[in-house]
């Protein structure tokens, strides 16, 4: 009996002493991106029993996978509301996995939006409305994902694509491509930022786009598309003839493929 009390005392004292240590280690691991922040649920959101059990059992990744597969099944049944809900769960469980955000947004902004746009059974006005709603939902998903992963080039690129191809918000698309490039996105995102700026109706953006293209042109990284957009921007911005690029543009110098990734 005496020993049991001693054991209990040791357990409790150690238990209290360990708390600051654990607090410190957890903070450290979170800072290194090793541990996930605890799940923060919005109002009216429900993780479901499986989700709660998983988050308590350290199996959030596994649960997210299972929900993702279920979402995939719902996708084959074109049950878009269910797909959206399941992906909401998935991204709650694994907010730091950019692929989930990407996929969720892709389902909404492309698959669901197109499905409604071409659905002959609906009234034309409703089809347009649903198309816009789902594209907007896709944008919202990507923006939410970017709050968790502000430095993820792929998410920025996906957001840019939605803006460029679906909402036609070219200024936003340009900004997003630019963010992608700034955060280590692939080379073309820089070019694409400029192309998107070129298609916007905002002189400030034209200026930015022109600056990017000029720099690339001077660095002898011009492509046929780049020349085209550069000429367009020269028109928009009324660049003096002397500073315009020659009609016969130099062809882009491709680096040999052995040089590794284009960055």
């Amino acid at each position: 009996m005496n020993r049991k009390l001693q054991a209990l005392a040791v357990l409790l004292i150690f238990g209290v002493v360990k708390l600051p240590l654990e607090q410190h280690v957890t903070r450290d691991l979170r800072a290194h991106g090793m541990l996930q922040e605890p799940i923060r649920l919005g109002v009216g959101e429900d993780l479901g029993q499986a989700g709660i059990a998983a988050s308590l059992g350290g199996l959030r990744g596994l649960a997210a996978c299972i929900f993702q597969l279920r979402a995939h099944v719902e996708f084959t049944y074109v049950n878009w509301a269910k797909v959206d809900n399941l992906y909401k769960l998935v991204t709650r469980l694994q907010p730091r996995n950019s692929r989930y955000w990407e996929e969720a947004a892709w389902h909404m902004a492309y698959n669901a939006a197109s499905y409604y746009l071409y659905n002959q059974e609906l009234k034309p006005a409703l089809r347009g409305q649903l198309y816009h709603d789902h594209v907007k939902r896709g944008v919202a998903i990507l923006e939410e994902g970017l709050r968790f992963l502000p430095r993820n080039p792929r998410l920025w690129e996906k957001l840019a694509e939605v803006h460029a191809k679906r909402t036609y918000q070219f200024k936003d698309a340009g900004d997003a491509y630019w963010h992608s490039f700034q955060n280590g996105g692939l080379n073309y995102t820089e070019r694409f930022a400029a192309y998107a700026y070129a298609q916007s109706n905002n002189p400030g953006s034209w200026q930015k786009g022109y600056a990017i293209l000029k720099r690339l042109y001077d660095a002898k990284k011009a492509t046929p598309g780049l020349i085209e957009y550069m000429k367009l921007l020269e028109e928009h911005l009324h660049i003096p003839a002397a500073q315009r690029i020659p009609e016969a543009a130099p062809v882009r110098q491709m680096p040999p493929p052995e040089e590794g990734p284009l960055r």
Binding site: E22, L29, G33, L35, G58, R60, G61, S98
Partner: peptide
């Protein structure tokens, strides 16, 4: 939970 780096590794 401090040993739950699995999810981060998967990511």
């Amino acid at each position: 939970a401090q040993f739950d780096i699995v999810d981060s590794v998967v990511n």
